[in-house]
Computed example of a mutant assay.
Amino acid sequence: MENGILTDAQQKDAELIKTLLEKIVTKKGFDNIKANAEGYETPAKIRRSKDTEEYFIPDVTGEVNGRKSYFELGMKTDDERELVTKWRLLSSLAAYKHGKLYLAVPRGHMAFTNRILADYPIQAEVVKI
């Protein structure tokens, strides 16, 4: 698992990413799947801005009918600002590529995720895992 902004901060579990892949990505028929997990090609790094070397790495990306979608684990974090920045960026990229941003939310993180989506202009489909 490569580390970008937030990757360490959220302590993303490889098992949760595998659950995301099994329960959502493959069931929805996505192909050309890339995941920030062992055994998969790592998704492209997305630079935060032209002026910085900091970058985000999506948890999972996939395509269906030529439309690229992004998949993220929706988990609580102390660095809310960075999380909002990442989700807004991924949501915009998904819309640009005619795809969607999917937020896979494990048990205990739904209220946090819904609050973020209510407070900020982020287009995302929330899915429980």
Rank of each mutant, 00 (worst) to 15 (best):
E53S: 12
I17K: 03
Y70T: 02
N36C: 09
T61L: 06
I116A: 12
A94Q: 10
L6W: 04
T42M: 08
V126L: 13
R67C: 11
M1E: 14
E80I: 07
E15K: 06
D31E: 04
T85M: 13
D79F: 07
A124E: 15
A124N: 14
L101Q: 11
E22H: 09
T7C: 15
I57L: 09
G99T: 03
E2V: 00
K97T: 08
A35D: 08
L6R: 06
F30R: 10
K97H: 09
K100N: 15
I5G: 00
F30E: 13
F71Q: 11
G4N: 14
I46H: 06
I46D: 02
T52V: 04
I57H: 02
R48V: 07
K76Y: 11
V64I: 08
E2S: 02
I116G: 10
R115K: 14
T61Q: 12
L6N: 11
R107A: 00
E72G: 06
H98E: 15
R67V: 01
I24C: 13
F112H: 06
V25H: 09
K27L: 09
K28N: 15
D59C: 05
K100M: 11
I122K: 01
E54C: 07
P106A: 13
N32I: 00
Q11R: 10
E72M: 07
H98K: 13
K45S: 14
L73Q: 10
K97A: 06
L101M: 05
E38V: 04
E82Y: 08
Y96C: 07
L21H: 07
T77D: 01
R88H: 08
K97Y: 07
V127P: 02
I116M: 12
M75A: 07
L16K: 06
Q123K: 13
E15L: 04
G66W: 07
A35T: 01
T61Y: 03
T85F: 05
K45A: 12
P43D: 13
V60L: 02
K28V: 03
K97D: 15
L21Y: 08
L16D: 12
A104D: 01
I46Y: 03
T26G: 00
L83V: 05
A95D: 09
W87V: 01
I33D: 14
T42C: 11
A9F: 02
N36S: 05
A35Y: 02
K50L: 11
Q10C: 11
I33V: 11
T61D: 13
K34H: 09
D59V: 03
P43C: 12
Y70W: 03
M75E: 15
K27T: 06
G39V: 03
G99A: 06
D79G: 09
K68E: 15
D8F: 05
R67D: 15
A37N: 14
A44Q: 12
E2M: 02
H109R: 01
G108I: 03
E15W: 02
F56I: 03
P43Y: 04
D8C: 05
G62I: 05
E82N: 14
V126Q: 08
L103D: 06
N32A: 10
P58Y: 04
Q123L: 07
K28E: 15
A94L: 07
N36M: 05
I122E: 00
S92N: 13
G99F: 05
Y40L: 09
L103R: 00
V127K: 01
D78K: 02
G74C: 01
L16G: 01
K12P: 06
